[in-house]
């Protein structure tokens, strides 16, 4: 997910007359004094780093697609994050009004660098600022890492449990957390079969296009399937169109292989895909979804 418009409340939407009123908070952006070191207890494998508010400096803003920007942040005190987690960005207007939105994290691992890819919603309150106005050196307030449920971890070397194959299914900007999983899989040289089905409007709208192609070329364990809904590249074998049940069945790891399935996209996309997966025999408990609202 890139921007979750539904996270805005009606009251919040009414409170700001213009889209440009919000700026990163100057007050909240200063770092809190360092907390005393915690006792060195080894975290359980299931544990994820504790969420907290952090000050994030914008290191780079680049165009990701015609409607989206890639933001690279240096987050003060960030404890690292697992692939699939998200964070909240809070903007504060001069009058104290705040708006908070959730964004999936495209990166994972222990470092303090965090990569987001944000899709601009034309009538959005936060995303137009992040995509069009944000500059290198700006400070943002971020809360995270968040969500221990929609995460995937590469297989640990000493793990005795046989890994289950993984199917990622992305709709549009829903690819962001799934890209983090694919990258984590490659970085760990994990040989677990990982397959990504990515539904996107046109070739220009593919997020992390170069990176995804490189991952697919570099590893036999990762396979990428693209579906174009509006416009196809030259010599593409199938006409543009929404993915349907039969095409889904053909492009995902069969239920008999008991894959873990992660689905992220608009609410409508996730609803359709999840119900088809159940019809195709996938276990509901093995499907994890993340809806970001929208159409």
């Amino acid at each position: 997910m890139s921007d979750r418009p539904s996270l805005s409340t009606d009251a919040a939407a009414r409170a700001v007359p213009g889209g440009g009123a919000l700026t990163p908070a100057a007050t909240g952006a200063t770092a809190a004094p360092a907390a005393p070191a915690a006792p060195a207890a080894p975290p359980a494998r299931s544990a994820v780093p504790r969420a907290a508010w952090h000050s994030a400096a914008v290191v780079a803003v680049t165009r990701e697609t015609p409607t989206a920007a890639r933001l690279e942040l240096e987050v003060d005190g960030w404890p690292g994050n697992a692939a699939g987690q998200h964070l909240d960005v809070r903007l504060t207007a001069p009058d104290g009004y705040t708006a908070t939105r959730s964004y999936s994290i495209a990166s994972s691992g222990p470092g303090s660098r965090v990569v987001l890819a944000v899709d601009k919603l034309p009538d959005g309150e936060v995303s137009p600022f992040l995509v069009d106005e944000l500059r290198t050196g700006d400070l943002l307030e971020v809360h995270g890492p968040l969500g221990a449920f929609f995460v995937w971890r590469p297989v640990e070397e000493r793990s005795l449990a046989p890994a289950r194959p993984v199917q990622l299914i992305a709709g549009g900007s829903g690819v962001v957390p799934l890209f983090a999983m694919a990258r984590a899989h490659a970085d760990a040289e994990d040989l677990t079969p990982l397959r990504m089905l990515y539904s996107v409007r046109t070739p220009d709208d593919v997020y992390f296009a170069d990176e995804l192609m490189a991952l697919a070329e570099a590893s036999d364990a990762f396979r990428l399937d693209l579906v174009y809904t509006r416009r196809i590249p030259a010599a593409w074998p199938t006409p543009p169109g929404r993915i349907m049940r039969e095409a889904l069945a053909a492009a995902v790891i069969p239920a008999a292989e008991r894959p873990l399935v992660y689905v992220c996209g608009s609410t409508g996309f996730v609803e359709r895909v999840a119900s088809w997966l159940i019809e195709l025999g996938h276990d509901a408990g093995s499907i994890r979804t993340e809806r970001f609202g929208g159409t």
């Binding site: 979750r4 968040l146 809806r291």
Partner: peptide, 12 residues
């Protein structure tokens, strides 16, 4: 009204 997953309240 369109709904989200429980994931969405993690930050809140």
């Amino acid at each position: 009204m369109q709904h989200l997953d429980g994931n969405a309240v993690a930050g809140q």
